[in-house]
C-alpha cells in the first residue's frame, strides 16, 4: 500500500500541524465546537484544526476518505452524488466536523438500525502529542489487521491524538424515508416492526423512522400502527443537555422517574437505551443523572456547565489511565476532558 499519496498530496498543511502540536504545551483539537461541552471541561491550550475536504470517494467501494475537518454536511453532499450516505447524524451537520463527531463518540438517532458510530470508522490517521502521524485500521470494509485503534479514537475526546483523516463506511441511501407517529406503546412498535431506524418516545408521543422500499415502509407503518407525518421527534433543547445510557429494558422504569423531574424535557430511543435530556437550568439534569445511575446507567453532559461531565467515576479507570499515559505521556492532549 502506498502510504504517502493521501497525506502528502492532499493534506499539505499536515507538516505545519505536526510542528504546532509537537511544540505546544497543551493541545486542544477543535472541530465545529458543536460538541464543545461534551464530557469534562473544555481545556485551554493551543487550538488545532484538522484539514477539510474529501480525499477520495468511489461509490463502488462503499467507503469515503476525508480530512477530519470536513463538515458532516459537506461529506453528505459528496456522498449524495453517489446515491450513498454515511450515518453520522450529529445535531448540527452544517457546523459539526467529521473528526469532532467521531471524537465525541455520540451515535446518531438511527442507531437502532445502523448500530454505533464506532462501526463507521474503518481507518484513522491521527497526530500524536509529539507530532508523529499514526495510522490505525485499514481502508477496506473488512479488516482485522492489527489492533483496533479506530475504536479507541472514537469517543476519546481528543485525549489520544488529533484525528486528521478518516476512512468511513458508507451505505446506499434508502429509497423511501418517513417519520410516523402514534400515541400507542412504543415498546409494542419495536416488537411489531422488523427494522425501524428509530423509535423515539417522550413519555406520550411515539415517533418512528422507517426507511427502505416504499411498499415495505407502508407494511411496517401498518404493522406498527403508525400514522405517517412529516415531523420527527422534538429532541430536547436548552442550555443544559445530556444523554443517558441505560439498558434498553430499563427504559420503561426510568421513564417513570424522569417524568417526575420538574423542568426536564426528554426523548428516549426505544431498543437502544439512549435518553436525550434537556432543561433550562442544571438542577433537572442532576436529578436525571441520579435516576439514570439508580437504573444502572449513567448520564453524559453534552451542553452547559451546571453539572460535571460524567458523574460517577469511569469504570476500569486504572486501565484507561494506562492507555492515556501510553499515548500521551506528557498529558498535553485535551487535559481534563476524560477524568482518567
Amino acid at each position: 500500500m502506498d502510504l504517502t499519496v493521501t497525506t502528502a498530496a492532499t493534506l499539505p498543511d499536515l507538516e505545519e500541524l505536526r510542528d504546532r502540536i509537537a511544540a505546544a504545551e497543551t493541545v486542544v483539537p477543535v472541530g465545529g465546537r458543536t460538541h464543545w461541552d461534551v464530557g469534562g471541561p473544555a481545556p485551554i491550550g493551543v487550538e488545532v484544526r484538522a484539514p477539510a475536504g474529501v480525499v477520495s470517494y468511489d461509490p463502488a467501494e462503499l467507503t469515503v476518505t476525508a480530512g477530519a475537518g470536513t463538515t458532516v454536511a459537506d461529506l453528505a453532499a459528496t456522498l449524495e452524488d453517489g446515491g450513498q450516505e454515511c450515518v453520522l447524524d450529529p445535531r448540527d451537520p452544517a457546523a459539526a466536523t467529521v473528526g469532532g463527531t467521531l471524537a465525541s463518540g455520540l451515535s446518531g438517532y438511527r442507531r437502532l438500525r445502523y448500530g454505533s458510530l464506532r462501526d463507521r470508522l474503518l481507518e484513522v490517521r491521527f497526530v500524536t502529542g509529539d507530532g508523529r502521524v499514526v495510522k490505525g485500521g485499514g481502508p477496506t470494509v473488512k479488516n482485522v489487521t492489527g489492533y483496533d485503534l479506530p475504536r479507541l479514537l472514537v469517543g476519546s475526546l481528543g485525549t489520544i491524538g488529533v484525528i486528521v483523516q478518516v476512512t468511513l463506511r458508507c451505505q446506499p441511501r434508502p429509497r423511501h424515508v418517513t417519520w410516523a407517529g402514534t400515541s400507542g406503546d412504543p415498546f409494542e412498535v419495536r416488537r411489531r416492526c422488523f427494522r425501524p431506524s428509530c423509535i423515539a418516545w417522550d413519555g406520550g408521543d411515539t415517533r418512528g423512522l422507517l426507511e427502505g422500499d416504499p411498499d415495505d415502509v407502508a407494511a411496517e407503518l401498518h404493522a406498527g400502527g403508525l400514522t405517517p407525518g412529516d415531523r420527527g421527534p422534538a429532541w430536547p433543547d436548552g442550555p443544559h443537555r445530556g444523554r443517558i445510557s441505560v439498558r434498553p429494558g430499563r427504559l420503561c422504569a426510568l421513564a417513570d422517574e424522569l417524568g417526575g423531574v420538574d423542568g426536564l424535557r426528554w426523548v428516549a430511543e426505544i431498543g437502544v437505551g439512549t435518553v436525550h435530556v434537556g432543561a433550562d437550568r442544571p438542577a433537572p439534569l442532576a436529578q436525571a443523572r441520579q435516576a439514570a445511575e439508580a437504573a444502572g446507567g449513567w448520564l453524559l453532559r453534552e451542553q452547559g456547565d451546571g453539572i460535571d461531565g460524567f458523574g460517577a467515576g469511569l469504570p476500569n479507570r486504572q486501565l484507561m489511565a494506562r492507555i492515556k499515559t501510553a499515548f500521551d505521556p506528557a498529558g498535553k492532549l485535551s487535559p481534563g476532558r476524560l477524568p482518567v
Partner: peptide, 19 residues
Amino acid sequence: GGLEPDAPGYDLRGCFVGS
C-alpha cells in the same frame, strides 16, 4: 462495555475484540 448503549470513557470492549 455493558448492555447500556455506551460505556463512559475509552471503548475498551472495542479494543479487546480482535486482540
